Computed example of a mutant assay.
Amino acid sequence: MLSVANLNVFYGQSHVIHDVSLEVPSGGAVALVGRNGMGKSTLLKSIIGMVDSRDGSIALDEVELSRQPSYKRVRAGLAFVPQGRMIFPQLTVEENLLTGLETARYSRIPDFIYEFFPVLAEMSQRKGGNLSGGQQQQIAIARALVSKPSLLILDEPTEGIQPSIIKEIAKSLVALRKELGIALLVSEQVLSFALELADRLLVIDGGRLVRETNRDEVDLDEVRSFLTV
């Protein structure tokens, strides 16, 4: 289980994450929604260690990580797919996946990667930069998965991806969670995607969590009011 308690993040003198607490249970799925600039990416980057938090606790299965560097958080069981995907465009699909083994507990690319993302098997020898945005996102998710995480963190995974591919990615993530027991923490603006993946929905506004609700209790009109300008 991921437990974040009383987290505060500053950029210089600007207080951008305000006393945030959240939990993602083992095997659970939580979606973080909000408009651009409300703190979604900063919060996720602080959890993985790309952005320093001033105070607060970040623990995975009761192991405190808040003062650990990113690579140790990955070894502890966190994996992060950043906004914009950030694959290696000059490497093939297979080579991109092999780079993920550097911090992995697998000795080779596991079979389930190609089972859940069959297009990557078909295009394993093509350069990542020649693939579509949706296919690159699948590479990015697969690279994170070969580290064998207990919690997969995704920042805006649907950005710049056509709707048909969004549905494929959602289907794969739901199946991965069910069959591998991987927990998910996803930031998203596409509400339908968030609700398809998550058991619980968190709304962030101005760096503060302002709403928290189970999926089957979501007030869609209220949540949409936080997503529109």
Rank of each mutant, 00 (worst) to 15 (best):
M1W: 01
L2K: 02
S3H: 14
A5H: 13
N8W: 11
Q13C: 08
Q13G: 11
H15L: 12
I17E: 07
V24M: 05
A31M: 04
L32Q: 01
G34V: 01
N36A: 06
M38C: 13
G39M: 09
K40Q: 06
K45V: 05
D52H: 13
D55L: 14
G56P: 11
S57K: 15
S57I: 15
L60F: 14
L60K: 10
L65Y: 06
L65A: 10
S66P: 05
K72C: 00
A76C: 06
G77I: 03
L78H: 07
V81A: 08
V81Y: 01
M86N: 15
P89V: 07
G100N: 00
E102F: 15
T103P: 08
A104V: 01
S107F: 08
R108I: 01
I113P: 03
V119Q: 04
M123T: 15
S132Q: 07
G134T: 11
Q138I: 04
A140H: 02
A140N: 09
A140D: 06
V146W: 06
V146I: 10
V146P: 01
L154V: 09
D155E: 11
P157W: 01
T158L: 10
I161K: 12
P163K: 12
P163E: 10
I166D: 00
K167S: 15
I169W: 01
K171P: 01
V174P: 00
V174L: 15
R177C: 13
R177Y: 10
E179M: 09
L180Q: 12
L184W: 07
E188S: 00
Q189K: 10
F193R: 08
L195K: 12
L197D: 02
A198N: 01
L201C: 00
L202C: 01
G207F: 04
V210I: 10
R211L: 15
R211P: 00
T213K: 04
R215D: 02
D219T: 07
R224A: 08
F226M: 02
